[in-house]
Write a protein that binds this DNA or RNA. Structure first.
Length: 203
DNA sequence: CACGACTAGACCAAGGCACC
DNA sequence: GGTGCCTTGGTCTAGTCGTG
């Protein structure tokens, strides 16, 4: 069993999988959903949900997004610590990174983990030629997201709308329809994602 | 071709309920 | 109270599929 690294390197999968497991279990219990109910709700088999909740699987970003949609939370919140953090400062060395086993993209939760805030910031390193397609659907409460490209280029498709973002560009969106990310370039694209949970009056 | 993610279905355990 | 049946919730396993 590997130890969780206190560095900016990608966390050992086992440690982060345990955190995701705890989060999914807690969120499902809080909503009073059985494995079967959540499976029906999000389109993931209950076997897979059970494996994730026991930390025995390394789910892909696409699958986690489906789970997050079914649970009505953002993908980023699945990486949060179960208990609220007392420290409002998130140090670089303690920010957890997670690598999508499918596309190889690496995301780092920048915001203080577990701190009660409607805003979350995530940094993403997206490999060249990689592509990730999410079957995102509307959630309650509504989740707003802005993608700010720090270095490189990313093609973002939202429903039928396609956007090419280059260094410095920023795209605002609402997570209510399928979306995909594609890096058409030969170098890794670095971008920041700012996620906000909106009250219904924002619509 | 090996490996890991994922699914479908079988299987198991526990709880509720009706019946004797 | 004991038994059998059904439902619910969870785990296990065999097989498929995609990727490197």
């Amino acid at each position: 069993m590997k130890e969780i690294k206190e560095s900016t390197e990608t966390e050992a999968p086992s440690g982060l999988n345990d955190r995701i497991a705890q989060r999914v279990r807690d969120l499902r219990a809080a909503r009073g959903l059985s494995l079967d109910a959540l499976a029906t709700h999000c389109g993931v088999s209950r076997s897979m949900i059970s494996l994730i909740e026991r930390g025995e699987s390394s789910p892909t970003a696409v699958l986690l997004e489906k789970l997050a949609t079914g649970l009505g939370v953002s993908l980023a919140s699945l990486f949060e610590a179960p208990a609220p953090a007392a420290d409002p400062v998130s140090r670089l060395a303690s920010q957890l990174q997670w690598r999508d086993p499918h596309s190889g993209y690496v995301r780092r939760n920048v915001s203080p983990s577990g701190f009660a805030s409607p805003i979350q910031i995530v940094e993403v390193m997206f490999p060249p030629k990689a592509r990730v397609a999410y079957e995102t659907a509307a959630r309650e409460p509504l989740i707003h997201q802005q993608v700010w490209v720090l270095d490189g280029v990313i093609e973002l498709t939202l429903g039928d709308d396609r956007h090419r973002l280059e260094t410095g560009d920023c795209l605002a969106m609402v997570l209510d329809r399928p979306m995909s990310y594609y890096n058409p370039s030969r170098k890794t694209t670095r971008y920041a994602v700012v996620i906000a949970t909106a009250p219904s009056s924002w619509r």
